[in-house]
Simulated assay, not measured.
Amino acid sequence: MTSEDLGQVQVLADAIHASHPEDPEVLAERQQLYPQGCFMLIDDGRAIGYALTHPWRFAEPPPLNRLLGAIPSPATTYYVHDVALLPTARGKGYAAQITDRLVSHAREAGFDNLSLVAVNKSQVFWEKAGFRVIAVPDLGPKLASYGPDAALMVRDVASL
């Protein structure tokens, strides 16, 4: 993903995550802070999905629609901010392919784990991809801002 793709990313994000809108500045900052963790899925010349990921602090998911400011040092997890596919792109193995790519990147970058907040009934997909739900004391109110089915999940890299 490049900065030139951000217009398409915004269109996709608005269509796919209507209940979790994010400002263009938030998406642009993710891409600018960690471009090596941002990907586009193009099919027949058309953007049909994207992934935004970056290093972060384990068990402290960033608030939705907020600027990060910087990647923390030390970062203790490779955070999957978003993997989003149009409905027409689902069920074709693309999400599994990008997940494998993200795990490889996390391993190469020296991270022990990947983490994310599963939303929109995606927990089952992430469990099939090797993630597990973790409970973190006092995280409930922040997770609630992601939606009623939000769950913090982690996948260990070293054991895979």
Rank of each mutant, 00 (worst) to 15 (best):
G7S: 15
G7T: 14
V9Y: 14
Q10T: 11
L12H: 15
L12R: 15
D14Q: 13
I16H: 06
S19F: 01
S19M: 00
H20W: 10
E22D: 09
E22R: 04
P24N: 10
P24G: 14
V26H: 05
V26S: 08
E29Y: 06
R30Y: 08
Q31D: 05
Q32R: 15
Y34F: 13
P35W: 10
M40T: 14
M40Y: 11
M40N: 13
G45T: 09
G45W: 12
G45S: 06
R46N: 09
I48W: 04
I48Q: 10
G49Y: 04
G49W: 05
A51R: 04
L52N: 07
L52D: 09
T53Q: 03
H54G: 01
P62M: 03
P63T: 08
N65F: 04
R66D: 00
A70M: 02
A70Q: 07
A75E: 00
T76L: 00
V80Q: 01
H81D: 15
L85Q: 12
P87Q: 05
A89L: 06
A89C: 08
A89S: 00
R90C: 10
G91W: 06
K92D: 00
G93Y: 12
G93V: 14
G93S: 14
Y94R: 02
A95D: 09
A96M: 11
Q97S: 13
D100S: 13
L102D: 03
H105N: 11
R107N: 09
R107H: 13
R107P: 01
G110E: 10
F111V: 00
F111W: 02
D112F: 05
S115R: 00
L116D: 02
L116T: 06
K121A: 14
S122G: 13
V124Q: 14
E127M: 11
K128N: 13
A129M: 15
F131L: 12
F131S: 08
A135D: 14
V136K: 06
P137M: 07
P137R: 02
L139G: 05
L139P: 07
L139C: 11
K142H: 10
L143F: 07
A144L: 02
G147I: 01
G147S: 06
P148K: 01
L152C: 02
M153L: 07
R155M: 06
D156L: 11
A158F: 03
S159M: 11
S159D: 15
